[in-house]
């Protein structure tokens, strides 16, 4: 569709101006007052140039030139996804190009003709296609963002702290799912080796519910620690959890459990002195 491409390149600056104007007038569109006018103009210009090249590239437009349009749309869309725009605002930004370009074309053609209708239909179809690209790019960016955040949370949530010579404390906070359980085991075993610890205290006060799945993960962790010659004391099982675990008939006899972290620490000291290690009164850091 050469004529579309020609019109766009001839009226490039006018199209960009009226596009920006339109976006500023439309409250639902993808421009907030805080958005930098210069950045917006650069973004829109790059997108429009790619689109113009696409229309100039042949009757149907080549796939290569559409890829360039899609990549510009993706850049605009990803930036908006990160900046907290809504999907609707982002879609509106691209869709609002339709009326802007239509107006220019109709002014040029100076009346209804079948050629004009065909040109407009082609414009609409192309912009719709770009809108779909924009939408998936938006979602993709958000998903990557969520994934990054949850990974960051995961790293944050499981510290293994050497609280005394030979004693490592790992407070568990949050949901213990399969991925988290694997990480807990990995980090605990790593800390046990690094600190040459004999005892690990796993505090589960911050785990919302201990069901059989969590119990299974705990059992495996305890077993793995035992293979390294370390004992695990599980603390922070609430009275509610204890009653529920008994009804579930979960077998936790393989691990030492204490109600509170304080009681767990006491037990850890007792085990240390029973092992002939330095008692807490003499042990230091």
């Amino acid at each position: 569709m050469h004529s579309l491409g020609r019109i766009l390149s001839e009226h490039r600056d006018a199209v960009i101006d009226s596009w920006i104007e339109r976006l500023r007038d439309d409250r639902g569109a993808g421009v907030t007052p805080s958005a930098s006018p210069r950045v917006l103009r650069i973004e829109l210009a790059a997108f429009l140039d790619a689109l113009t090249a696409f229309f100039l590239s042949g009757i149907e437009g080549t796939e290569d030139s559409f890829r360039e349009v899609a990549s510009q749309a993706t850049i605009i869309s990803s930036a908006r996804a990160r900046d907290g725009y809504t999907p609707a605002q982002t879609a509106t930004l691209v869709m609002s190009l339709k009326p802007v370009v239509s107006a220019v074309i109709q002014r040029e053609a100076g009346g209804l003709s079948s050629e004009l209708l065909e040109t407009l239909a082609h414009l609409n179809a192309t912009v719709d296609r770009v809108a779909l690209v924009t939408f998936s790019a938006f979602v993709e960016t958000r998903e990557r963002l969520i994934e990054r955040q949850s990974r960051a949370l995961l790293d944050l949530a499981t510290p293994a702290l050497p609280i005394w010579r030979h004693i490592v404390l790992m407070p568990l906070v949050g949901i213990v799912d399969t991925q988290r359980a694997r990480q807990i085991m990995e980090w605990l075993l790593e800390a046990l080796t690094r600190e040459e610890a004999h005892i690990a205290i796993l505090d589960v006060t911050g785990v919302p519910v201990i069901d059989s799945r969590v119990a299974l993960h705990l059992t495996k962790t305890v077993e793995a620690a035992r293979l390294l010659g370390a004992k695990v004391i599980v603390t922070g099982i609430s009275p509610d959890a204890a009653q529920t675990l008994v009804k579930l008939d979960v077998n936790l006899t393989s691990m030492i459990t204490r109600g509170t972290l304080r009681a767990g620490l006491g037990e850890a000291f007792r085990l240390l002195s029973a092992d002939g290690q330095a008692p807490p009164s003499k042990a230091g850091f």
Partner: peptide
């Protein structure tokens, strides 16, 4: 009460798992 709520949540958790 919390103990019933905990048990109920555990039951849901077991079946959902």
């Amino acid at each position: 009460k919390t103990v019933q709520a905990y048990g109920f949540a555990t039951a849901v958790s077991e079946i959902a798992t």
